[in-house]
Design a protein around this nucleic acid. Structure first.
Lengths: 184, 184
DNA sequence: CATAATAGGGAATGATTGTTTCCGAATAAA
DNA sequence: TTTATTCGGAAACAATCATTCCCTATTATG
């Protein structure tokens, strides 16, 4: 099930929702049409399931990146670096499903919009939490506004996915190096 | 012609390329199917023309925002503020066609991808230029790396369009206030 | 005034879409 | 061995899509 969902995920990320036909989906999932409709109500349900799996996997990845850090500042820096790496190369070209859904569907699909907004806020809260941890352990100055900075950093991460999809090269060290000035 | 293109632009921005049918297009442009195909070769040509008009209009708007500023720093600040405002409310919900094209089409449409990349680089060069102007007039420290900072700011602006499309509120003063720390 | 030319509107047309249904094979139960 | 049941595959379905063709006004030109 998860492997089939991962394969669907890939084609949804690359082409978006409307551009992926059921034919593309069955080819990617290596399943027949009937089997897909036996497992899911319709195309929208496949997308929703793929979306949830994507969110879960990505959440695990960024939490893992945050884990490799002694201070709040280091954890945040690792999270940003992880975002840059995922925005580059073949993974970057594949794109982020949250960004893709926000851009392609949130205007016409209230269900998707709710999930997208919720995910953005979850990520924002996570970053704000890292900032506060850094302020508690002394690695980030106390005068930094955690909420405002977190919201700007969400813009940065989502923007990196857009830029990465357009295949502009992103230098992780340099980009994150500049971004860390927001914690001064 | 420009008014028809503006109407097409609106529906393309809201729904994206694949989700807008010819019927949506003719309804928005208040033209019959045959008339559209007499003026443009196909749907893709309509999109391309709308894309170019969007880029031209938006370029004019940000140049105008930059014009209202005495120093390089002020001009850059006004540009960022302009981006936040365009990412909010009804305009933000409508979305940015460059971001939309990057996410939805750049993986499958080389023509669009070229235009998107070119536009991103143009914007980046514009911002880098503003930074260098600020360094020349003394409003921005000389040790700021113009290229790296400009690239990060492109990520910020594109990300704001994504977040705005998801209808998360953006406070211009606070967000730009934080972003200006990148020029320290 | 007559006529050529052009622009716009709308119906017809394949192709493609998402979806359903039916059928065969494999597995488990009896 | 036989009966049920589940699962996957392929053909059939209606709807919608982008596109083309043809007709009708309107304008320009002789």
């Amino acid at each position: 099930m998860d492997t089939a969902l991962d394969r669907a995920l890939r084609v949804f990320r690359e082409r978006g929702y409307h551009a992926t036909s059921i034919g593309d989906l069955t080819a990617a999932m290596r399943l027949a049409t009937g089997s897909v409709y036996k497992a899911f109500r319709d195309k929208h349900a496949v997308f929703l399931a793929a979306f949830e799996r994507y969110v879960a996997v990505r959440g695990e990845q960024t939490r893992s990146a945050a884990g490799r850090g002694a201070s709040g500042r280091e954890r945040l820096r690792n999270v940003l670096l992880s975002y840059v790496e995922h925005s580059q190369g073949i993974e970057g070209r594949r794109g982020c499903l949250v960004v893709g859904s926000a851009v392609e569907l949130s205007a016409v699909d209230p269900v998707i919009r709710t999930r997208v907004s919720a995910q953005l806020e979850t990520n924002e809260d996570f970053i704000a939490g890292l900032i506060r941890e850094g302020q508690a352990d002394g690695s980030i100055p106390g005068h930094v506004n955690a909420d405002d900075t977190a919201r700007l950093m969400i813009c940065i991460t989502q923007g990196m996915r857009v830029v990465g999809k357009a295949r502009l090269p992103l230098d992780g060290e340099r980009l994150v190096g500049v971004a860390m000035k927001l914690l001064a």
